[in-house]
Amino acid sequence: MTARDEVLARIRTALGPDRPPPEIARDYRTTDERTVAELLAVLTDRLEDYRATVLRCAPDAVAATVAAALDAGLGAGWDPASVVTAPGLPGPWRPGGAAEDDGRPAAELAAFAATLTGVAVAIAETGTLVLDGSPLSGRRALSLLPDCLVCVVEAGQVVSGVPEALTRLDPAAPLTMVSGPSATSDIELNRVEGVHGPRTLLVVLVA
């Protein structure tokens, strides 16, 4: 008997023939009445609680706001060549001279100081950005290795809670949910920002 057959046989023996699964009542909140403006305020509050920096701007001011975010993250006078963008990031959002992720070996991305990506969805209630491996979000290593991450979020991508976000995502895609900069609670259960992932998270919120 293979291990597979044996484990399955054990499960069937353990459960017996009569095993109706219980009903699942989904009477928790799955939608929200709040307006977009309210959700943006909640998202900002949550992100700032995680010590991320949020910069709001109008759709025609994304490039300038991205530059301001990079000023905050890298210090004024940053080198555009030290910034790498997701391959599908809209041209007008990119700083002049920034590199584009061209699929080079992932470890080489560690040489960049900052990454600039879009997101698939943002969750207001938990302060979460979801990246889905699409050309706009970039592959997973891109938003991981450089020490500073700048994400551009558009108002239409913001949902209230986790249930709504999952309906917008493709389970087959490599998904990363990012809620603030890298952190740990391992020393005396106090949260400290910055371990292996990006130590600085900046969010450009376009509305």
Binding site: P174, M177, S179
Partner: peptide
């Protein structure tokens, strides 16, 4: 409210 990183892969 949410942990910093959740990875999902298929």
């Amino acid at each position: 409210r949410m942990n910093p990183y959740t990875s999902l892969w298929t």
